[in-house]
């Protein structure tokens, strides 16, 4: 079972987490971006930025995951991306 590292709590089994979707550039609040925000899913062959939540501690954070190897390159709280 995959391990995911919560930036606050450390490595935990993936079952402790809830997937919240990809980090999207398009905003569903802007009428001209609505369709893209709702229906266009980013699907890169490479690193994807995703929102995740650690349910026991309610920590919401971003993970950078490679879509081919499924490796998690980094996890960080938003606004606190490491250099």
């Amino acid at each position: 079972m995959k391990l995911l590292t919560c930036p606050v709590n450390g490595p935990r089994n993936i079952t402790e987490f809830q997937y919240l979707g990809p980090v999207r550039a398009a905003s569903a609040e802007q009428p001209e971006q609505l369709i893209e925000a709702l229906f266009y899913a980013e699907n890169p062959l490479g690193v994807m930025r995703e929102w995740w939540r650690h349910t026991p501690s309610n920590t919401v954070f971003i993970a950078e995951r490679h879509t081919v190897s499924d490796q998690i390159a980094a996890t960080y709280l938003p606004n606190r991306k490491p250099a």
Binding site: Q18, L20, W51, R53, T55, N58, V60, P78
Partner: peptide
């Protein structure tokens, strides 16, 4: 609850 936390994070 999860949606509220997520939205307010943003």
């Amino acid at each position: 609850f999860a949606d509220m936390l997520f939205l307010n994070t943003q």
